[in-house]
Design a protein around this nucleic acid. Structure first.
Length: 599
RNA sequence: CGGGGUGUAGCGCAGCCUGGUAGCGCACCUGCCUUGGGCGCAGGGGGUCGGAGGUUCAAAUCCUCUCGCCCCGACCA
């Protein structure tokens, strides 16, 4: 059970140290910070910088220092094993990619400023790859032509670059970042599904092996496009994404995607129902709450009319006053590439009234779409498209007819589950993995075709699977830390064991620690030897800050009784062990930690 | 992209308002001392005060421009 957990890099180091131990703190490049960096907001960022794992070079761009790189290497080793197990082959693609490929897929035009575009000396356009669908599709179309050669599954671990609007939180949301991305190509949807399930399983195994608590949720496919998508979220209060999950069944979804069961209907319409909508003066009453209390009705009796603009048109999205529009759902319904709320001036231009008084009745300058719950209202109030005026007694279907009716609601905690009688709960999560069924979006544009058994040509059906390496390491820290520092899960720790030498001025103590280090190295233990002549407090604090799972202390006090002290970072319990039994005891503890992880 | 803030030694900061020879803590170097939770004493090195221009006898300090960085916002009629 030893071997699979060790990274190849780590194993090499251990092997070489067998001959001449070099994993001495004094000879490595580890520098911790006594003070918190002034710019770190979240724990993982703060601790990674303080512990000397990373340092910042520019906004959203970090150096991976030796200790941090060991963590990432171990994580990569786990990812490689699981990807290989899932039948994917590793390769490495260029970071810099020619514009032509991106123009073929049209993403050169669709991608915003997030795509870092660069020119070479001949003024030819390139970009620094934020992802690699185009490149991989190009590779596969050059070589694969027959259904007999499918499926194909390829992956790489690569540095990517996305020029984020606002990079923050260290490795959590950097501009340059390390990512594992995989792509698969198929001759049928069933075959894609097979690989997709295998990838989901691989991801579950990766995160479980890292000792992380995570959930898999349904996700929106976003700009990448496709039919089915799941995200893997490490649960943490500092997570940037909201996930909704059912307390009863297994349903879970990104808040962009989440649907709800039937919502409670609005209370009975409290006013008379005129044969036609009646204009009512509502001076300065703009918000849902203002208008509702002014008219003496419930917020759910109001039809909120939100004016959006897409690349091609204006859209009036109707939603019950007590609910909110989910822009992602709206965007998908419209098939729009860009969608944003219209500015105040544009609202006036479209509706003829200032913000707060828009309504669907008689509105002609915008495409009207409505949430399902709007159409269920027997009567409602809306803006009148006139300053300080609302219409009361509007009947959906009679007084206006939307072009489309769909689920446009944002699901919220407490809403009924769409699959069972349970309720949805909301939690924060860090997106560490994302799998997509892409379909033929790229293959058809880029003519990545194959011939079926009857000799007919079809575009290949694709899947893509991303896993943020740096972000997963950061998420591990968000989930595993205390006041003193990081508490690494064993599989991700830069070293599994830290051997601490105290009393470096006493030759017999040094000799004992040196000997123990040699023995541990010989036994293949992943150990770092803190041989510095620092004071004990400094060493202990560094050990806690970096978070080595096992700490072994050799000092004159214990040595007087022929003993050393062993403790686990997780519980801090100190136990004295005979010098002669130390290696065996450490191996026993490590084994225990591994078993603990399986459970 | 909008708003706010900030840039002074490797790190964390004061000094700026009210212009007059650049400071503190940590880190670093030397010596002594000390060694089971960030010792102690003494001595020492290190900064064109982000950059450019301007005002002034004199600018870290005031003015203009510029660059970097940080925070908030760009989510609801």
């Amino acid at each position: 059970m030893n071997a699979p957990v060790l990274a190849p890099g780590a194993a090499e180091n251990v092997t070489s140290s067998r001959r001449s131990p070099t994993m001495r703190w004094s000879r490595t490049f580890i520098f911790t910070l006594r003070q918190d960096p002034s710019d770190a907001e979240v724990v993982s960022h703060r601790l990674m910088v303080r512990a000397g794992l990373i340092s910042k070079l520019a906004t959203g761009i970090y150096n991976y220092l030796p200790l941090g790189w060991r963590v990432l290497q171990k994580l990569q080793a786990i990812i490689r094993e699981e990807m290989n197990r899932a039948g994917s082959s590793e390769l490495v693609l260029p970071a810099v990619q020619p514009a032509e490929l991106w123009q073929e897929s049209a993403r050169w035009f669709e991608y915003g400023p997030e795509l870092l575009r660069i020119k070479d000396r001949h003024q030819r356009d390139f970009c620094f790859g934020p992802t690699h669908e185009e490149v991989i599709t190009d590779i596969v179309r050059r070589s694969v032509t027959s259904y007999r050669q499918l499926p194909v599954s390829l992956y790489q671990i690569q540095v990517k670059f996305r020029d984020e609007i606002r990079p923050r939180f260290g490795l959590m949301r950097g501009r340059e970042f390390l990512m594992k991305d995989a792509y698969s190509f198929h001759s049928s949807a069933d075959d894609l599904d097979h690989t997709y399930r295998a990838m989901e399983e691989a991801y579950r195994r990766v995160f479980a092996r890292c000792g992380l608590s995570f959930v898999e949720v349904e996700a929106d496919t976003g700009n990448i496009g496709g039919s089915e998508s799941h995200e893997f979220m490490v649960l943490a209060d500092t997570g940037e994404d909201a996930v909704l999950s059912c307390s009863e069944c297994g349903y879970g979804a990104n808040s962009e995607k989440a649907t709800t069961g039937a919502l409670a209907p609005a209370p009975p319409w409290p006013l008379e129902s005129p044969a036609a909508p009646k204009p009512v003066d509502t001076p300065e009453q703009r918000t849902v709450d203002e208008v509702a209390s002014f008219l003496g009705i419930a917020p759910s009796h109001l039809i909120k009319t939100m004016i959006f603009e897409t690349d091609t048109e204006f859209v009036a999205a109707l939603i019950r006053g007590d609910l909110e529009v989910n822009e992602v759902k709206l965007k998908n319904l419209l098939g729009a590439v860009h969608l944003q709320l219209a500015s105040e001036q544009k609202i006036e231009q479209v509706t003829g009234a200032p913000q707060g008084f828009a309504g669907p009745v008689g509105l002609s300058g915008a495409r009207i779409v409505a949430d399902e719950t709007v159409m269920e209202l027997p009567a409602a109030a809306t803006g009148a498209n006139r300053t300080d005026t609302h219409l009361v007694g509007v009947v959906p279907g009679r007084d206006f007819t939307p072009v489309q009716v769909a689920d446009l609601r944002r699901a919220r905690a407490g809403d009924p589950c769409p699959r069972c009688p349970g309720q949805l709960v909301e939690r924060r999560g860090i997106e560490v993995g994302h799998v997509f069924k892409l379909g033929t979006k790229y293959s058809s544009k880029m003519k990545c075709n194959f011939l079926d058994h009857e000799g007919r040509e079809h575009p290949m059906i694709m899947g893509c699977y991303g896993l943020g390496v740096g972000r997963t390491a950061a998420a591990a820290i968000e989930q595993n830390h205390d006041q003193r520092g990081i508490i690494w899960p064993l599989p991700l720790a830069p070293f599994e064991v830290l051997l601490v030498l105290l009393n470096s001025d006493q030759p017999d103590v040094v000799a004992a620690a040196d000997r123990l280090y040699q023995e541990l190295a010989d036994a293949g233990v992943d150990v770092l030897y803190d041989d510095r002549s620092e004071r004990p407090g400094v060493k202990f604090n560094d050990a806690d800050l970096i978070g080595f799972p096992v700490r072994v202390v050799v000092g004159s006090r214990g040595l007087a009784d022929g003993q050393v002290e062993i403790s686990l970072r997780r519980d801090g319990v100190k136990r004295m062990v005979k010098l002669a039994d130390t290696v065996a005891e450490i191996e026993r503890l490590l084994e225990q930690l591994r078993i603990h992880l399986e459970a």
